[in-house]
């Protein structure tokens, strides 16, 4: 059987001060993804290699890695597409590394909470026994942004986040927009505080790389620019109009 070489980023904080690369030869099989190759390494060659994975069907968002320089879901990145190799596998960029390919992402978890990603509305007139109506076209307005699997590839691709981790970042803003654009939601104004901050939408310089990296077609870059429009609009209104007309 043909083989291919994986060059894997290793970092063992208890024994090493700096990361190293380790090479493993794995079978080059047509239907193997990078994740299958890593599992082969772990089961057959080196049990100490650490990485996250779970669903292996591109929906849980666990297995993001940098494969040959690009942020990818390793379950959906096939060896044959990178033959003859070697394939360099590193942790996602822009995040601190806990160990090997495992990144630290509590920063995102906090930012996600900060944009209030839940329906905000006055529920006093809602009838719990029926649905809130929403036409397919109204759903289309936000549907795309609801597809985010929190895989962190967009943060890894975003140079702004790399340079300043205070930037709230693509996925969190896209999710804020997901709710802002939902016909059932009334929370746009509440979310604006966080979004219109310096570290919010204005941090984005529209590189657009987040959208290219997104494996689910979410288009965070578009979401951010649209949020900028809203934020600018609101700022102008707040400046020009008395409160009661706004």
């Amino acid at each position: 059987m043909k083989e291919i070489t994986l060059r894997v980023f290793r970092y063992r904080p208890e024994t090493e001060a700096e990361p190293t690369f380790q090479e493993y030869a794995v079978p080059l099989r047509d239907d193997w993804a990078v994740l299958d190759a890593l599992n082969y390494v772990k089961e057959e060659i080196d049990p100490t290699l650490s990485y996250r994975w779970s669903c292996r069907m591109g929906i849980c968002g666990s297995c993001g890695m940098t494969v040959n320089g690009d942020p990818k879901l390793s379950c959906g990145t096939f060896l044959v597409d990178h033959a003859p190799g070697p394939i360099t596998v590193e942790p996602l960029r822009n995040f601190p590394v806990i160990r090997d390919l495992v990144i630290e992402m509590t920063d995102f978890m906090q930012k996600l909470g900060a944009v209030q990603p839940w329906i905000i509305r006055d529920e006093s007139d809602d009838d719990p026994h029926t649905e809130l109506l929403q036409t397919p076209s109204e759903m289309d307005d936000y549907k795309r942004y609801s597809m985010c699997i929190n895989c962190m590839l967009c943060y890894s691709a975003c140079p702004v986040y790399g340079l300043d981790s205070k930037f709230i970042g693509p996925a969190a803003i896209a999710l804020a927009q997901r709710y802002n654009l939902d016909s059932r939601d009334e929370g746009q104004e509440e979310r604006l505080d966080v979004l219109s901050d310096d570290e919010g939408v204005w941090g984005c310089t529209f590189v657009g790389e987040c959208t290219r990296a997104c494996p689910k077609g979410v288009d965070p870059a578009g979401a951010i620019q649209r949020a900028k429009l809203i934020a600018a609009n609101e700022a102008v209104k707040a400046f020009l109009l008395p409160r009661w007309v706004r």
Binding site: S54, C55, I59, C60, G61, S62, I149
Partner: peptide, 10 residues
């Protein structure tokens, strides 16, 4: 795992 990675997701 982080809750949103749980298997309900699939």
């Amino acid at each position: 795992v982080y809750p949103m990675r749980s298997h309900t997701v699939s």
